[in-house]
Design a protein around this nucleic acid. Structure first.
Length: 562
RNA sequence: UGACCCAUAGUGUAACGGUAGCACUCCGGUUUUUGGUACCGUCAGUCAAGGUUCGAAUCCUUGUGGGUCAACCA
């Protein structure tokens, strides 16, 4: 048995080193800490796959912890959608927890810090505090309230807690170092007054802890061994460790924060703020618009949990800024759907085709293979008749020999049916082809085993019987932006790069009748076109399909070169 | 005019002082009743300059380029 050794990413190496240095494997514990202020996107999926993936790899618990310290922005709706998305991706958390569960403990620790002279109440406005903060290149200066008596601090802090003061009038600050080169260490705010109802604690609290004060202590309370976050928190690590020092008991595990680069995707944006802007300004139809890089958008588009997990795994984890090619995501969904999606025929841009030597009124049921990649997928029947629809672009009156499709005087195979030859066309006044007249070779029926059925013709095209076809709506999606990195331009806003053709609706496409029983969410391959799934907008009398992704199309590439 | 982080084919990611590899993309070919799939193949890379070493993508120095940091957001 030779097993290819899978290389470890740098975070796994850190874990392995900790284990080698004596950390008990049973102490390994991770967490995914979303703020419930928006929907999860493909970048979060990378973090989810990382943390829950480590949990699976090391058989360690992974907590879902909502970082809910800002009642102004957070809502139950987001909590619900986040839980749903994580489960849909296929992961299970050990415990569902909330930073707000720790408000009392955090408050008690803050009192202790005041008593230890490590925190003080500042009466200044945020503007004054900002002014004293200095800049990255200039040190800050101390607050005039920095050396307040412990008793006074205790009294003031309690009054803050009890709602005696207005918002913005007082904050509790850690007493660290106003001249630190790390701005975060310049007496950071630990608590602010916020008289807002919290989605879980209601009216209990008039003060709310800040991220830095909350996050590391929450990790410590939960005994998270490795707290993994994105690169922009690198500078926070010093403060994370400082706050931990204030409460740390050497008997307990000390959490370790490490940072990795967030996953970016080409031709889209990934910040919640920008995504929200797209939703609110109506460029897309909600957070689950199939063009959105949100988990809910990708789900509606037809992406599967597995394809997203495999995308995340193959993209990897590292520390450098990146823009991952959208083509990699598309590769993974095609790769899965190719194996699982039943094949059907659908005509999106129909032109009528009449087989003049096929008896009028005759109908027959032909057999089609559901999936050549899956021997167990079975077969279905497809009605055939004298009048069909084919794809308009599959016919040309004249074309060179690179065009493998139907042209006058030449033959082509109708998928799962007969070989036909184009004889003539009817056009309307402006030259648009109305009907293509063909003859068929009666002995060439697919699968009949006759000599004629085994003739090799260069092209095979898809079709539907006009009498039997179902009309349905088909939505063709394309990338939301025309630029690889729409938000990487200093002089231009990301919305300048919005793709005006990101959605094309075909109100009356024709699909084969077997689709009548298709259920919302079901995925199919429309042969020669792409993968499509049934949208939630579908109703009993009207199918609606989303194009998940087109098939690779080497003909389109040949055409483009001209 | 600061601190910290990062730099490997077009993109993403390995190689942990000992032959620069993998995936996607691109391009070419074979097979094919999907111009799909599958299979085969081609092109293509260590930011630069010094230094240490028998040997450097890897260690050191300097430079260059990119990113992060001045919310009572997370």
């Amino acid at each position: 048995m030779s097993e290819v050794k899978k290389s470890l990413n740098f975070l796994e190496q850190i874990i392995e080193e900790d284990l080698a240095k004596g950390l008990d494997k049973s102490k390994l514990k991770f967490r995914f800490p979303p703020e419930p202020n928006g929907y999860l996107h493909i970048g979060h999926a990378a973090s989810i796959c990382l943390n829950f993936g480590l949990g699976i790899k090391y058989n360690a618990p992974v907590n879902l912890r909502f970082d809910d310290t800002n009642p102004v922005k957070e809502e139950q709706e987001y909590v619900d959608s986040i839980k749903n998305d994580i489960q849909w991706l296929g992961f299970n958390w050990a415990e569902e927890l909330y930073s707000s569960d720790y408000f009392q403990q955090l408050y008690d620790w803050a009192i202790m810090m005041i008593k230890n002279g490590k925190a003080f109440v500042d009466d200044q406005t945020s503007e004054q505090i900002a002014e004293q903060k200095g800049t990255p290149t200039k040190p800050g200066s101390n607050s005039p309230f920095r050396d307040r008596l412990v008793s006074e601090n205790l009294d003031l802090f309690e009054k803050m807690k009890n709602g005696a003061f207005d918002e913005g009038t007082h904050v509790l600050r850690a007493k660290i170092d106003m001249s630190s080169p790390n701005m975060l260490m310049r007496d950071p705010v630990m608590y602010r007054i916020l008289k807002k109802a919290h989605h879980r604690t209601g009216e209990d609290w008039k003060i709310y802890p800040m991220y830095d004060w909350t996050h590391g202590e929450s990790d410590y309370i939960e005994q998270i061994s490795h707290s993994l976050c994105t690169l922009e928190f690198k500078h926070h690590r010093e403060l994370y460790d400082w706050f931990l020092d204030q409460v740390y008991d050497p008997e307990k595990l000390r959490p370790k924060q490490r940072e990795f680069a967030r996953r970016n995707l080409s031709y889209t944006v990934m910040s919640k703020r920008k995504l929200l802007e797209l939703v609110e300004s109506g460029y897309v139809n909600g957070w689950d618009d199939p063009r959105m890089p949100t988990i809910s958008g990708l789900r509606r588009r037809g992406y599967t949990p597995r394809s997203i997990r495999e995308f995340s795994d193959s993209a990897g984890i590292a520390k450098r800024d990146n823009v991952t090619d959208l083509a990699l995501l598309e590769f993974h969904i095609r790769n899965e759907l190719n194996k699982t999606a039943p094949r059907v025929m659908a005509v999106l841009d129909p032109v009528k085709l009449v087989i003049t030597n096929y008896p009028e009124g005759k109908e027959e049921m032909l057999t089609g293979e559901n999936n050549p990649e899956d021997a167990d997928a079975g077969f279905r029947t497809i009605p055939f008749s004298r009048e069909l629809y084919i794809e308009r672009e599959d016919f040309r009156e004249v074309a060179n020999k690179k065009f493998f499709r139907l042209k006058l005087g030449k033959e082509v195979r109708l998928k799962n049916a007969y070989i036909i030859k184009a004889e003539s066309v009817d056009k309307d006044a402006d030259g648009t082809i109305k009907v293509i007249y063909c003859t068929y070779d009666e002995d060439s029926k697919s699968g009949s085993g006759t000599e004629a059925s085994q003739r090799k013709v260069k092209g095979t095209i898809h079709w539907v019987s006009s009498k039997h076809a179902l009309k349905s709506e088909v939505r063709l999606y394309d990338r939301l932006f025309t630029d690889e990195a729409p938000d990487a331009h200093k002089e231009r806003g990301f919305k300048e790069f919005i793709n005006p053709d990101s959605l094309k609706v075909i109100p009356d496409a024709y699909v084969e009748p077997s689709l009548a029983t298709a259920q919302k969410g079901d995925s199919f391959q429309f042969q020669r076109l792409g993968y499509f799934n049934v949208d939630k907008d579908a109703s009993d009398d009207r199918l609606v399909f989303n194009r998940t992704v087109a098939l690779r199309d080497s003909w389109a590439k040949i055409e483009q070169r001209k």
